Amino acid sequence: MRVLYSTDPVAEKERFRRWRETIIERVMPLEISEVGPGPFSGRIEAAQVGALTVNRITTSGIRTELTSAAIRRSEIGSTITVALQISGAMTFSQADREATTARGDLVVLDRQPSSILTPEGGQGLFIEIPQERLERVIGPAKLYSRTRIPAEQATTQLAVRYFHQLLEVHRRMEARQAERMGSIGVDMLIASIAERLTQDVPRALHGTVVVQRAKAQIEDTLHDPALSPSDLAAAVGVSLRRLQELFHERGQNISDYIWERRLTVAAQRLREPHAAQMPIGLLAYACGFTSQAHFSRRFKDRYGASPREFRMDTFQRTLRSATG
């Protein structure tokens, strides 16, 4: 990862002041206070994996406050942060909700007034993922922000290992590969969050959580042409009949939802400049279609144009926009 800032070359008595000034100037106007004895040290590293921004922050004991004023003054995009604890412990507080994370735990951070306390120092990985993509699958982030997603959970372990390995090799990837690998990482994080939401859920919300888990599973296995409603029901631990009932209660059909997601993802990839040379058949298989003919037929029914026409039209509109 690329080092954005480090206090190592700064005189010990100036380190915390310089750290605070750097964060306010380069990141966000946060309220930061030093905690605990000893000289302060801090480091910010960053990596860009496709569209994902990943920051690794290492500090001594510190408290960071995100205030309403800071949120109003900042230029935050439409992303949600997932924090991965690498070492030490952090306590995330928001209103009446609090979560303390240890090594290997995850926690979702939305854009609300809150604080982060690292009493004895530590290191965390902060991954920015698209808010719309997360909330489309598992609902508004405000419902599960500051909820600890434990390291003991199998899906958490897989996601954590994946990101550690991804950050080691991402620089050797082509842009298209990095985009795809980053997208897989987001799917793994979403699956981990969805699994956590099935625990300690009030009965009245259980059906919603089951559907959210099913949708997370769909996103994770969308490329698999063998994905079926019965497989999906088994993956989330309910009968097929019950899962069908839950989707119908929300005005949806499982099979229709799967095909709609496949078509939507295919359309998104056809719009991506780095995928302009990808053969239509390869793109179709990557989205779970068993043949290019089947894909083209369904795509034209949905969008009123063949995949090739759709991509060409997107390219021409982009070119006209760029040339005024």
Rank of each mutant, 00 (worst) to 15 (best):
R2W: 05
Y5E: 15
Y5G: 12
T7W: 11
V10A: 07
A11G: 09
A11S: 15
E12T: 09
E12Q: 14
K13G: 00
K13S: 12
E14F: 03
R18M: 14
R20C: 10
E21R: 12
T22R: 13
R26L: 11
M28C: 03
M28W: 01
L30N: 04
E31L: 03
E31V: 04
E34C: 03
P37G: 07
F40Q: 03
F40I: 07
I44R: 10
I44L: 14
A47R: 02
Q48S: 14
G50I: 08
N55V: 04
R56G: 06
T58N: 08
T59W: 08
T64V: 15
T64Y: 00
T67Q: 10
I71L: 15
R72T: 07
E75L: 06
T81M: 09
L84A: 11
L84W: 00
G88C: 06
A89H: 05
A95I: 12
D96G: 13
D96Q: 14
T101R: 01
A102S: 13
A102E: 10
A102M: 06
V107F: 01
V107P: 03
P113S: 07
P113Y: 08
P119K: 10
E120D: 12
G122P: 01
G122Y: 03
Q123V: 13
L125K: 06
F126D: 13
E128V: 00
Q131A: 15
Q131F: 11
E132A: 15
L134H: 10
S145M: 15
I149M: 06
I149N: 06
I149G: 04
P150H: 00
T155G: 01
T156E: 02
Q157V: 14
A159E: 00
Y162K: 04
Y162I: 01
F163R: 06
F163M: 10
Q165K: 14
V169H: 10
H170E: 08
R172A: 15
R172T: 15
R172D: 15
E174C: 09
R176V: 10
E179W: 03
M181Y: 06
I184Q: 08
D187F: 10
I190P: 05
S192Y: 03
E195F: 01
V201K: 01
V201P: 05
P202R: 09
V209P: 07
A216S: 13
L222N: 01
P225L: 07
S228I: 03
L232S: 02
S239W: 00
R241C: 02
R242Q: 12
E245F: 00
F247G: 01
F247I: 09
R250Q: 08
R250H: 02
G251K: 14
W259H: 07
W259R: 14
R261H: 11
L263V: 09
A266Q: 04
Q268Y: 12
R271P: 02
E272H: 05
H274A: 11
H274T: 12
Q277E: 09
G281P: 02
G281A: 12
G281Y: 01
Y285T: 15
A286Y: 04
A286D: 12
A286T: 04
F289S: 11
A293K: 07
A293M: 11
H294Y: 06
R298H: 03
R298D: 06
S306Y: 02
P307K: 07
P307G: 08
E309G: 15
E309V: 14
D313H: 13
T314V: 14
R317Q: 13
R317P: 02
T318V: 13
S321W: 02
S321P: 02
A322P: 01
T323E: 09
T323K: 09
